[in-house]
């Protein structure tokens, strides 16, 4: 097997595995940039995955090939509503944001498994029938050499994730909304003085993270696991948080980090069948994203600093 063939196996699986992380990490960027730490991304992904799979199983006969797309929309809406728990607790009721996020994670797993048992009377769902097709992107897939590596044998939704990170970069850095969002996360009192509604911006930040986390969970369930059980989102949300931090709270950075983590995941799965990689225990690839995040935080690879006001509830009139 030559190097070119290896790339043709690894790169598409890297992009596919990275897509859920990209969506979720972008959600995390919105939330943290508005000053709300969101440890609950894992739980939001769980809700997204759960809703997407149940929706897919329920409506696949009526919707046909459109089922996975509409499942993603349903998951997005459900997770956005679910994220309101976190928003209300941590913004309005001034709960500790980390604690509230932990509660979100516990609640999401408990609630979705409770409902799975209620609906299907067993611990996990059936395998979905309507999935995304793997496609070669027209035109781009025909580019010699790189077309075969980057634009074939993939899912449309994965490329949407990459494009979305550019959109999010534009929103956060080039629009008035983005400026307000960032200012609320850096210095809420100054923002408030300038007439920006801090609570509203933070609610929007958290709800956007809910929507994107829901999409992330849905994409993971619809492209990777194909069913829902307690282990569907096994730490993907935390890895998305890692990607967000490793990407220094920047949308494009988060996307790059997510792709890198996707590579590590894909090597840990397909690496066993490849020369060279099969000698590396999968454990090293599995822990690489986490270790790298810690290293990034310690400042060995340029310092990663969180938005200044993230983690602190804003209390009007306090100094």
């Amino acid at each position: 097997m030559d190097f070119y063939q290896i790339l043709q196996i690894i790169v598409p699986s890297m992009i596919a595995l990275a897509a859920p992380l990209i969506f979720t990490a972008l959600g995390g960027v919105f939330s943290e940039r508005s000053g709300v730490v969101n440890i609950g991304l894992e739980g939001l992904m769980v809700i997204g995955a759960f809703v997407a799979i149940v929706f897919n199983l329920t409506f696949d006969e009526q919707l046909g090939a459109w089922t996975p797309w509409i499942s993603i929309l349903a998951a997005m809406v459900a997770a956005m509503i679910f994220s309101l728990f976190h928003a209300v607790a941590s913004i309005t009721f001034r709960a500790d944001q980390t604690v509230s996020g932990v509660a979100i994670n516990l609640l999401a797993v408990g609630l979705s498994l409770f409902l799975v048992k209620k609906i299907y009377e067993k611990g996990q769902t059936d395998i979905i029938q309507e999935t995304f097709d793997k496609i070669d992107i027209p035109l781009l897939g025909d580019i010699p050499v790189i077309g075969k590596i980057f634009f074939s044998n993939g899912y449309y939704i994965s490329y949407i994730a990459i494009l979305l990170s550019i959109v999010v970069w534009y929103i956060i850095y080039k629009t008035p909304f983005g400026l307000r969002l960032r200012s609320v996360g850096e210095h809420p009192m100054a923002a408030d003085t300038m007439g920006i509604n801090v609570y509203k911006m933070r609610y929007l930040g958290v709800m956007l993270s809910g929507a994107l986390g829901g999409i992330g969970g849905a994409v993971h369930a619809l492209t990777v696991t194909l069913d829902f059980s307690h282990s569907t989102i096994n730490g993907q949300g935390f890895m998305a948080i890692a990607a967000m931090i490793f990407g220094k709270w920047h949308p494009l950075g988060a996307m790059g980090a997510a792709l890198f983590f996707g590579l590590a995941q894909s090597l840990s799965i397909v690496g066993a069948s490849l020369p060279f990689f099969k000698d590396i225990p999968a454990m090293y690839l599995l822990i690489a994203p986490y270790i790298l995040t810690i290293v990034a935080l310690t400042g060995f690879i340029g310092r990663a600093d969180a938005p200044k006001a993230s983690g602190q509830p804003y209390i009007k009139g306090s100094r």
Binding site: F85, V88, A89, T92, F93, R94, A95, D96, V99, S100, V102, A103, I104, L106, L107, V109, G110, L111, L113, F114, K117, K118
Partner: peptide
């Protein structure tokens, strides 16, 4: 009754304690 109901209850208790302001 699925035993996950207790996980839900525990999560809600955390919410309520954390939101003690409320």
């Amino acid at each position: 009754v699925p035993n996950e109901i207790v996980d839900i209850v525990i999560a809600l208790i955390i919410f309520f304690v954390a939101s003690s302001y409320f």
